[in-house]
């Protein structure tokens, strides 16, 4: 599958190493013609930086169609520059062109969450794949009970989407708690790992859907903490990462137990993968 061409319309530096790109399709692409830029919350695209390489990056924009579009539809991606491709991506400027294949993969359990409490736990860059789900929950707020976002990151300087977090925190129908692992000086917020926030918020564990995204260690301990509160495995959903190549279930690069993360994931119901989750050999 060949990538479609997209032009960078906007670059926003979120933190010292993380940036958000808004991408607009150039005419003529196969996938654009078929699907436009519609996607489901939790899905990802393969972004191809010409001459460097291709990486999977979650879509972090709003999946709900706007009633009145002020500008042409775009894919939004938030990326942390960690290696060869993502660092090259961080150098892109408005007007530059890159290749996009996708959207691929499974999505967050938007339907299962209807009528329930929703606990979203994000660690670091893991907030980006969860943001579309939050946009969607908020756009249909009446369909859900309590909505809670717990976000942990390294330090106050690493907080993503700061202005949006402040706006979300000001809402009466959404509880947002942010914590950092390290802080000095002027920070008056929480300090401690994100799992310490779980006992502090109130939700009905028997009627809760939990969505988790972050480093695997963080997800393991978050699951334990949610289970201590009484949330069932079948109501916990996690987003997994592995290196990818084809992204369509052919090459086997992203194999995880008997599943492929690109095709069966990245969002999995925890009880369906718990056997392989956290295993050293996998």
């Amino acid at each position: 599958m060949l990538p479609d061409l997209y032009r960078v319309q906007r670059v926003r530096q979120e933190t010292h190493d993380t940036f958000t790109l808004e991408l607009e399709p150039m005419s003529g692409g196969q996938q654009v013609a078929a699907k436009g830029v519609s996607f489901a919350a939790g899905q990802f695209n393969m972004l191809y930086i010409f001459g460097v390489g291709e990486v999977p990056i979650s879509i972090s924009g709003n999946p709900t169609p706007r009633k009145v579009r002020v500008s042409p539809p775009r894919f939004v991606h938030t990326t942390r520059a960690v290696g060869t491709v993502t660092k090259a991506m961080g150098k892109l400027k408005r007007g530059d062109v890159l290749g996009v294949r996708g959207p691929f993969g499974s999505h967050w359990p938007m339907e299962e969450a209807v009528g329930k409490d929703i606990v979203m736990v994000a660690g670091g860059i893991g907030l980006a794949p969860l943001r579309p789900a939050l946009y969607q929950f908020l756009s249909q707020r009446e369909n859900y009970n309590r909505i809670i976002l717990l976000y942990g990151t390294r330090s106050p300087a690493d907080i993503l989407y700061r202005r949006e977090l402040e706006q979300w925190r000001a809402r009466f129908d959404l509880e947002v708690q942010v914590t950092v692992d390290q802080a000095m000086g002027a920070w008056h917020g929480n300090v401690g790992v994100v799992t310490t926030l779980i006992p502090r918020v109130s939700f009905d564990p028997l009627r809760t859907i939990a969505l988790i995204c972050g480093p695997e260690i963080m997800m393991r301990f978050t699951i334990l903490e949610l289970q201590k509160r009484g949330v069932g495995k079948e109501n916990i959903f996690i987003s997994m990462e592995r290196n990818m190549k084809c992204a369509i279930g052919f090459c086997g690069h992203c194999q995880f137990g008997p599943t492929f993360i690109c095709k069966d994931g990245p969002v999995f119901r925890y009880d369906r993968i718990q056997e392989w989750f956290g295993k050293r050999e996998i």
Binding site: V82, G123, G152, D181, T195, T196, P215, I217, F221
Partner: peptide, 15 residues
């Protein structure tokens, strides 16, 4: 246990 997790610097690179 929380402190151990905090010390791991799980959001750092190569974590």
């Amino acid at each position: 246990q929380a402190t151990r997790l905090q010390l791991l610097d799980i959001y750092g690179l190569h974590s």
